[in-house]
Structures are given as structure tokens and as C-alpha cells.
């Protein structure tokens, strides 16, 4: 499949508009999925996923063919998603380290059970509930969790996509997983 995509990308670089259609068809669900899990609603997800493909197309000449195309594409998609989250609401407050503590964020100060009233939880489908819990993660943990468990990417690939060291990816996966554990253990 990599070879198939590589050939298509070469054609796109040469100005073949229609070759890009196959690329979009091939990656649309993956990219849409990342955006959906990051942003939480279908409308925005579609918007950002489209934007990601358009950016990929217009910047195709900056894509290095020796690297995986999917990594490059997912990177555009996650960056756009993170930008959108930042503009939307100030949930990065949770990321801010609490003074006097090492590595402790506001996030860890929130106790798990006060997020949703019990009856509301029950009215939600389990899947929707999990989806919401993922959405409540701060963007930097959300992105690694989405890439790790929904797109099933390796730590190395996530590190390439987000342009952060593998060690940082590990730490974030670790914290994200702990946060989800707290949220989901009562379900």
C-alpha cells in the first residue's frame, strides 16, 4: 500500500490533480477519525479533516518522499486539530503546572467522579461516554491517546507526527492512560 501511495504522490507532485483523489479516498477515514476524536463533533471534524487534505495538497512539494506519507498527513491533521481546540476553549488551563508541585497539573487535581452527574452518564451510550472522556483529556494527552489507541500507531510514529521526543510521548501516554483509568474504572 505504501508503494501505491508513493506512486500517487509522485503523480500529484507532477501536477496530476486526479491522483490526489485516490490519496484522499485512502486516508479519509483515518484523518477524519483523528479529527473527530480530537474535536469531538462531526461538523468540526469534517471541516478540519478537509482542511488537512487541502493543506497537504498545496504543500505537497515540502513532503519528503523518504518518509512515511501517513506520518506527514497525520501531523497536519493533529496540528490543525490542536490549533482549533486552542482557539475554541481555554482547556489548556488544565495543562498548567500547579505551583510548588513537580509535574502536577490542575488536571490531576480534579477528582474523577465530579465530571458528569450520575443520571446523565446513564443516559449516554457507553461508547459516547468513552468518547466524551477522551475529549476531556487535555489536548496534549488526547492527541497521543488518539494516535496510540484509535489509530494504533507506534510510539516512534507518534513521536514523528507530533515532533516530540519518544520519551515525552511515553510520559504523555502514561499520564493519559492513568487519567482514563480513573475516569473509566466505575463504568
Amino acid at each position: 500500500m505504501e508503494i501505491f501511495i508513493k506512486q500517487k504522490i509522485k503523480k500529484v507532485k507532477k501536477g496530476d490533480h486526479s491522483a490526489f483523489e485516490d490519496v484522499v479516498t485512502f486516508y479519509q477515514n483515518k484523518v477524519y477519525q483523528i479529527c473527530y476524536r480530537m474535536l469531538g463533533n462531526a461538523h468540526e471534524a469534517e471541516d478540519i479533516a478537509q482542511e488537512a487534505f487541502i493543506r497537504a495538497y498545496t504543500n505537497i512539494h515540502s513532503y519528503d518522499e523518504n518518509r512515511k506519507f501517513s506520518t506527514w498527513l497525520y501531523r497536519i491533521a493533529t496540528n490543525l486539530s490542536i490549533d482549533r481546540i486552542r482557539k475554541k476553549k481555554p482547556d489548556y488551563f488544565l495543562d498548567a503546572e500547579v505551583k510548588g508541585t513537580e509535574g502536577l497539573t490542575m488536571y490531576s487535581q480534579i477528582s474523577a467522579d465530579e465530571d458528569l452527574p450520575e443520571d446523565e452518564v446513564e443516559s449516554l451510550e457507553l461508547q459516547e461516554y468513552i468518547h466524551q472522556e477522551i475529549l476531556k483529556l487535555p489536548a496534549k494527552y488526547r492527541s497521543v491517546i488518539v494516535l496510540r489507541y484509535i489509530d494504533e500507531l507506534s510510539l516512534q510514529e507518534i513521536s514523528d507526527i507530533l515532533d516530540i521526543p519518544v520519551g515525552t510521548v511515553k510520559t504523555r501516554v502514561h499520564r493519559g492512560r492513568e487519567a482514563l483509568r480513573k475516569k473509566l474504572r466505575h463504568v
Binding site: 484522499v24 498545496t58 477522551i134 484509535i150 492512560r177 482514563l180 473509566l184
Partner: peptide, 26 residues
């Protein structure tokens, strides 16, 4: 269990006209 639950969230599909829309707005 948390990991399994996250993994179990069903894969979402892009809208059916997604490709056409992207191609239209290139």
C-alpha cells in the same frame, strides 16, 4: 480495561461525500 474501552470505540467513517468535497475545494 481503560485501554480496551478506548480501543473499542467504533471506528468513525468520514461522510460519504468527503472526497468529492475535498477535490472540489482544492
Amino acid at each position: 480495561r481503560a485501554v480496551a474501552m478506548v480501543q473499542s470505540t467504533s471506528a468513525v467513517q468520514a461522510p460519504s461525500d468527503f472526497t468529492a468535497k475535498v477535490m472540489g475545494s482544492l
